[in-house]
């Protein structure tokens, strides 16, 4: 951070001395990136906002309807349901990823520096999400799935993990906790490596136990990286699509119809491009507000190290 700030003020100072910019050179460096940004980010953002004010089925001409889509949205129980389902999913999966990640990171940190072990824990994160979804669909299959063998062996009843309205969402959350926990753990582990070993030596001399050390030394010192891991995990969880598209398709009875999947369905199953755009823009606003709050928290949570 300090290096960045220094470099920045150095840029300013030097530019002031020289009295002119590098406009021409900058144009050459930036042209491709700017073209990409203008055509595939700016232009679609403007178009998306415009579509949200129209009634459009992708075939005929868009028809301007003012704020009708937003009025529909406010009164659409499925929209509110999708937000609720998304929130439930985000809490579950982020909770599992962060708690599991913390535990794993602490274990790694106290026990070993093995690169092989860390690479193995990262493998689930590298598996394509579609493959992960297929794989778990099979593991959780109501008849032949591995998990139902375990239940049967324990003398319990078979469960339709992905077909029961109560279990479907927790199952999807578990699937993505499996794929994301290793990554979160490595992030947090990297943070723990930054804590000076002397602090642990001091704690050891004082005779502080492992759990106590973790809670009162490690945890407060890795707060910034914990916040960062939380943001990464939150943002990716809000975009849940692949797992649902492959395993449950929003069912049973809307139990897993998360906002991303709902938008996708409106646009490409029901061809309501206008309404889908209004939903997407609302999601932008919701996430924008959340990010703002997170940023405030991030800034507030500086490590006690600095």
């Amino acid at each position: 951070m300090t290096a960045m700030t220094l470099a920045k003020s150095a840029t300013r100072a030097r530019a002031r001395r020289r009295g002119h910019g590098d406009g021409r050179t900058a144009l050459g460096f930036l042209a491709p990136v700017f073209l990409g940004f203008a055509v595939f980010y700016l232009y679609p953002a403007v178009r998306g906002a415009w579509y949200s004010l129209t009634d459009w089925n992708l075939l005929s001409e868009p028809r301007f309807v003012g704020l009708d889509n937003y009025a529909t949205l406010v009164g659409d129980p499925l929209f509110w349901n999708s937000l609720k389902v998304t929130a439930y999913y985000v809490v579950l999966t982020v909770g599992m990823q962060i708690l599991g990640g913390l535990l794993l990171a602490a274990l790694l940190h106290r026990l070993t520096r093995s690169l092989v072990l860390r690479s193995l824990l990262l493998v689930p994160w590298l598996v394509p999400s579609v493959t992960t979804a297929l794989l778990w669909m099979w593991l959780l299959d109501a008849n032949l799935g591995f998990f139902n063998h375990l239940l049967t062996a324990a003398g319990l009843d078979n469960q339709g993990f992905l077909t029961s309205p109560d279990l479907a969402l927790p199952s999807v959350a578990t699937i993505n906790a499996w794929s994301g926990t290793g990554y979160t753990a490595l992030l947090l582990y990297a943070g723990m490596l930054l804590v000076p070993p002397q602090i642990y030596e001091a704690a050891a001399i004082d005779g502080t136990g492992e759990v106590r050390t973790f809670l009162s030394v490690t945890l407060p010192l890795i707060r910034p990286i914990l916040a960062f891991a939380l943001v990464v995990s939150l943002i990716s969880s809000f975009q849940l699509f692949d797992t649902v598209a492959v395993t449950t398709k929003g069912g049973p009875v809307n139990a897993t119809r998360v906002i991303y999947f709902y938008i996708y369905e409106q646009a490409f199953t029901h061809f309501k491009m206008g309404y889908a755009s209004a939903l997407a823009l609302s999601l932008v606003l919701v996430l924008g507000a959340l990010t703002f709050v997170q940023m405030r928290l991030l800034r507030a949570s500086t490590s006690d190290l600095t």
């Binding site: 232009y43 679609p44 998306g48 491009m273 997407a280 999601l283 996430l287």
Partner: peptide
């Protein structure tokens, strides 16, 4: 502007990009 675009969920630009 680039940083702001970081915060936008991809689905918002995905719909018009598909149309494009």
């Amino acid at each position: 502007l680039f940083v702001a675009a970081l915060m936008v969920p991809p689905i918002f630009t995905l719909l018009p990009n598909f149309v494009l």
